[in-house]
Design a protein around this nucleic acid. Structure first.
Lengths: 232, 232
DNA sequence: GAGTGGTCTAGACCACTCA
DNA sequence: GAGTGGTCTAGACCACTCC
């Protein structure tokens, strides 16, 4: 790429090579930024950028004062895309349907407030809905939206457009946390998904923030036939 | 964070806010780096870093000469790390224990052969084991190893070292596929994990390849208290 | 050809953390 | 207190792409 004097990519790749070939061994301390800059004949900022990328990739661990070490167990990471439910369903060649179950401004239960890190007085919109694939229940969605962050959600009726799609278009986020787990369906979830109470369900939760500001918490419940697959 | 003159985080968050509040609308061209640097009273490099983060997060799309636009359909992707079970457990501050349940060369069931894309005559090693956190069952592991790809696995006894760790050190891979799902525990899984038959369990499966060569297929079963969490 | 983003340099200050 | 990484500045050159 661009024949810069010494590109951060070249430096990054060279350091990755040293790690993979065990010239720098797991757990070992590698030279400081200044020393590396001298060695590679580059500015410290350039070396810093290369090191930051390696740290993000999990090959090294960096701590102030303590220096930079080769990670003991290179952390493999996988990526998965977060599609809209609708795209997920249509992508499988199934017909998508959406049904709004309820929508109202509501005081959230303590656990929701806590997970969003909000005070007692913050107004939230509570939306429950169902997504179907070829007329079969595919996902039950239970969502709380922070009206302080997204006041426009008060005007949205979510009758035709799912909160999922509405938020994508109206409330970008910068941070997100995902949680996946198995659970036993409660009575309502079970009946909505066409399962018996206590059936295993696959639960995905997502919290999103814009900077520090919590946007929404959503709990997505799938029947046990659901598979989340990702590659690499 | 660190009271730098004007941190790239502050700039990034402010720009994210403008996007979320539609001051900068989807598809619209936003000001160039130089103009933004002037506006925020920061160096162009600082603005550049903020913009690069937003681009990585999918909020904006950047092209030379064409400038920077607010993304029409933010494509989000999340990453999650695949730690060793042991690290996962120790990382939570719990004591790790490992118990080998069985280990033998075996003809795999049809479904295993199919998932690995192997013929009938390929020899496989079948290993079953249990990982405990603070003496409580944490994960039941059921693994098949392709002995054509990893012949050394014949000599490994897996009594002290789990196949997971042994493979990390002895069988690099280049490709992996992950599947996550909820299921009902069968009788054996249930009793090993201290659950009743039919209890919901969280099942993660992983297949790895070295190039085209299948290495291993592992099924990891967790009690329903298990949470897989990832951020960003 | 010209405008915009991509990257590098050289120097500086600061925050965090360990001793 | 001191060493290391984190970040910012100001200036510069370059590559890519659109016209």
């Amino acid at each position: 790429m661009t024949g810069a004097r010494t590109s951060f990519r070249a430096i990054r790749d060279e350091m990755a090579r040293r790690i993979s070939e065990r010239q720098w061994r797991p757990g070992a301390l590698i030279p400081g930024e200044e020393a590396l800059a001298r060695e590679f004949g580059a500015a410290r900022a350039t070396v810093n950028r290369a090191l930051q990328e390696l740290a993000r990739a999990g090959l090294i661990e960096r701590r102030r004062r303590a220096g930079t070490r080769v990670a003991l167990h290179p952390v493999r990471e996988a990526r998965f895309v977060i599609p809209l439910v609708r795209q997920e369903i249509e992508g499988r060649g199934a017909a998508y349907q959406y049904r709004l179950l309820s929508r109202r401004e509501e005081r959230p239960p303590e656990i929701v407030r806590a997970r969003l890190g909000l005070g007692e007085s913050v107004p939230l919109m509570h939306v429950r809905c169902l997504h179907l694939a070829d007329r079969a229940p595919y996902q039950y969605e239970d969502r709380w939206i922070n009206l302080d962050a997204v006041p426009a959600a008060r005007e949205a009726d979510f009758a035709a457009t799912s909160p999922n799609e509405w938020l994508v278009a109206n409330a970008p986020f910068t941070e997100a946390e995902f949680t996946f787990a198995a659970a036993a369906a409660d009575g309502e979830e079970g009946s909505l998904l066409g399962l018996g109470e206590g059936s295993p369900v696959f639960v995905a939760e997502r919290i999103t923030w814009l900077g520090d500001l919590p946007i929404t918490l959503v709990r997505m419940v799938h029947p046990p036939s659901h598979r989340m697959v990702t590659r690499l």
